[in-house]
Amino acid sequence: MSYKIYEINEDLLDVMPQEIRDLQFRATWGNPKRGVMDLPYSKELIEEHSLCAGCPESMALRYILASLPSPEDTIIVNSTGCTSLVFPHIALHTVHSLFGNQNAVASGIKRVLEWRFPDKVKDVVVLAGDGATVDIGLDCTLQSFFRQEKITTICFDNEVYANTGGQESGLTVKGHVFKMAPKGKQWDKVPFWQIAIDSGCHYVARLTVSSPKRVETVIKKAIYVAREVGPTYVHLYTPCILEIGLNSDDGLDEMRQRDKERFAFFEYVSDAAKEVIERKKEEGLL
């Protein structure tokens, strides 16, 4: 069916608000070469959101939504947290279920869609925070990797439980003082990108969202590999400027600093994934 489901019946076009008409006429559908460079001109698939002013996570969401190679056939599964404040405003089929079960729900969706539509591409992408991915949802996340589910998991790592008011998470760096770690976190940040590799992911990337173009490439690779090979994982640093005490215009600078250290760009590609990526490059899709 693809983006036909966004086509408004001609007879009722005149009663539709502008933003919905824009989605049909000014958004980028059906073009696998779409990317972040459409952002300055096109209607975005994310309308408006209630995240804080200057939140790097919202930048990440813009890039990801602009980079999906086939948004019209993409299902987004998310989890509880700041990200869940954004998903209702996305022009795709999205699911919010429970806190931590996102990879399990995505597994069910992906397998059934593959079975119901054997001749179609249906991408399933999980977008969730660090608490959802690595703490409460660790079991579901890892098991979906073990089972080789063909889904892309994207973790927005802001190193804290932001939505609940700033509690320490498994991805908080050691020593950092947050609520529930009033003496500073007692143990190291979980190197989840490495765990993802060991757990069977075929493409893993760790980066900040300081470079839109880089996010685009990573997301496309992750989705193409997941489509054909197996699970892929993208670990994005999206600092919570509020909880680490920065101003609303400091987010980009914070990420640029971390680019040089614990979030230095890192990429793992399995042999099977390499083949897919090379092919997509030849096809001009990467």
């Binding site: 300055p40 001109y41 209607k43 975005e44 994310i46 309308e47 408006e48 959101h49 995240l51 804080c52 002013a53 200057g54 939140c55 790097p56 919202s58 930048m59 969401l61 813009r62 939504l65 839109p212 101003n247 609303s248 215009d249 987010g251 980009l252």
Partner: peptide, 29 residues
């Protein structure tokens, strides 16, 4: 780099960016 969607756009005709002020949250990024 604007964190808000559909807010800071560009016009090729006039060759500059422009702000949809209703949507701007004023982060100054």
């Amino acid at each position: 780099f604007c964190p808000e969607p559909n807010t800071l756009m560009y016009t090729d005709e006039e060759h500059h960016a422009f702000v949809v002020q209703e949507r701007c949250k004023g982060c100054a990024l």
